[in-house]
Write a protein that binds this DNA or RNA. Structure first.
Lengths: 155, 155
DNA sequence: GTAGGTGCAAAGATTTTGCAGTGCT
DNA sequence: AGCACTGCAAAATCTTTGCACCTAC
């Protein structure tokens, strides 16, 4: 009642509420805010999510962000990938499934839709019985732009 | 090539010495030990490398391990990948190029030789101009064994 | 002999945890 | 009303850094 779960934002399909309820978790403003932040930021570290949430409502603690992300990941509303060295980056499962291409030179993050990689997935499934967590997949390397400039750097 | 300087271990081809010298780095027992450890351990965190090195010669400091790995990576003798959450794992560039399949359930790490994934590499190169750092590639997901057992873990 | 390298310890950065109060159900 | 959740602060990890001494070149 206090909250109204059917607002129009992308985060507000009844799904997320149900997902949490089904598993016995409670619906709190903090969880809503964190989920929204993940949705809006695209790729975000816990730190950035914290800052983003603070801009709307001050008072959400960083440790709550961590605990909330853990819960949201547990119920399958977000996933994380390791894009940069230190921090994991979280993103919503609503995003189109994609893998990340991270350039080690310019740090740029590009995305490749999963559909382009279907034969990789097929191979892993058929030959290995391995079901990849695609949202989690990050490919490091050198992008087209940096490939010329830094050619010969490593080999 | 086939010079057999001391022990004939995989680490002892003249290459590693030259690699360091070329770049103006000095050859120290610590660097040799760390490189050997990376070679022998396969996939190892800085922590594990430290322990491994300690078993041969006590007295190599953990911070030296970190600094040494940085140097070895800089000259291209080792690379790192993000297999588990916290720590990067290092491995020798001597290993056959491969990607890592990490099961999120049993934590097991499997390897797929790069040759099996040639069409992925080709695609990324041709369509994207992206040169992946294969040794760095880690695919998270669920392996064959855990796919059955824990099929409902997320429920 | 001269820099670069190492060891040691302390500082940083990041993530986790215990506990008491708050609020969802 | 009961108990999960949050905030706060301290603890636990993991990694980096300053400085004096040592050693490869």
């Amino acid at each position: 009642m206090a909250t109204d779960p059917e607002t129009g934002s992308a985060t507000d399909s009844p799904t997320w509420v149900d997902r949490l309820r089904e598993r016995g978790f409670r619906i709190t403003p903090q969880r809503h805010l964190v989920l929204q932040a993940v949705d809006e930021l695209g790729h975000a570290t816990p730190e950035k999510i914290h800052v983003h949430v603070q801009q709307r409502t001050s008072g959400v603690n960083l440790s709550t962000v961590y605990r909330t992300l853990e819960v949201l990941e547990d119920v399958g509303l977000v996933t994380h990938a390791h894009i940069s060295h230190g921090s994991p980056t979280y993103h919503s499962v609503r995003d189109e499934p994609h893998v990340h291409l991270v350039c080690r030179s310019c740090e740029r993050v590009d995305s490749v839709p999963m559909s382009e990689l279907s034969n990789l997935l097929t191979y892993l499934n058929d030959a290995r019985g391995f079901t990849p967590d695609v949202g989690h997949l990050t490919i490091h390397g050198v992008c087209a732009d940096c490939g010329d400039e830094t050619a010969g750097r490593k080999r």
